[in-house]
Design a protein around this nucleic acid. Structure first.
Lengths: 142, 142
DNA sequence: CCTAAATGCTCTAGTAGCTGTAGATTCAAG
DNA sequence: CTTGAATCTACAGCTACTAGAGCATTTAGG
């Protein structure tokens, strides 16, 4: 059942060896069997769980959210409202983030457009950055 | 000339007291004068510099990039091509980030739309997350 | 003038999510 | 049997702050 070394799992999932050990350290991934020489040996359940974690991380879920998702996913007969809630919260976060980046983009573009390409002394980028009347107009946290 | 306490500067710029001290620690903000009782006292030049730093940070420039911008901005008679380059690089980063978030958004929405709102056992969100054939399709680093 | 509250000081540790290093051991190929 | 790659543990480091302990100083009110 347990056939993959940590290196094999690493390349299969596309996740660094240290990261796998880190997930074990923080309790996201249960400790696997060990070989006679103390090397970790993983089976399909570990593979699935790691894939779940990585895919979730790539979608930007926090470790804590993933912890919740994993524990929720084990109770098959429970309502999935909480799972849906976590996913929707993440979507809302992404939306806010996109909106904020859009504002930043506009400001950066305006700034760059004003650069006359000459000397630092007359560089509008520096002027714009030094002008903090624009500060906090982009606020909205993350 | 040096009239502001660290607290006054903090509220004026909208930056935490600890953050100001941190910028001094890492050499972004030069050490200010001190009062007889060893309290920091800031003048207009510090105020400007801190504003520059905060505005740049809000636009997502890294501390290292800000260090470059600050040192470049001191050489008034130099070409501002490097400054322009740093700004354009940041814009490109923002663009990549927005594109990536757009892909994530789509995937999250699809996932959420598939949730039937019933029980965890049949929850498509969990299924989608566990399916790592989608992993790395969103790759593109940051 | 005195006192209490607010603010300041330094130093240290903690946050998220890994990533990298050192030095010892184990494994697989030739 | 040897050699080189992979693995082991343990710990330091990264970014950009943020929080707290324990003390000193400043300021406002009475």
């Amino acid at each position: 059942m347990a056939t993959l070394t940590i290196g094999a799992l690493s390349t299969k999932i596309g996740c660094k060896v240290q990261t796998i050990r880190y997930y074990e350290d923080i309790g996201l991934l249960p400790p696997p069997e060990r070989s006679s020489g103390n090397h970790r040996l993983y089976g399909p359940s570990h593979e699935k769980r790691l894939a779940f974690i990585r895919h979730s991380r790539e979608l930007g879920f926090s470790i804590d959210q993933i912890r919740s998702l994993l524990s929720l996913s084990d109770n098959h007969d429970q309502s999935c409202a909480t799972i849906d809630g976590i996913a929707r919260k993440r979507l809302a976060d992404v939306d806010r983030h996109i909106a904020r980046l859009g504002r930043l983009r506009t400001e950066l573009q305006t700034m760059i457009a004003q650069c006359d390409g000459n000397q630092v002394g007359s560089c509008h980028i520096i002027e714009v950055l030094a002008d903090y009347s624009h500060s906090h107009c982009t606020s909205g946290k993350h």
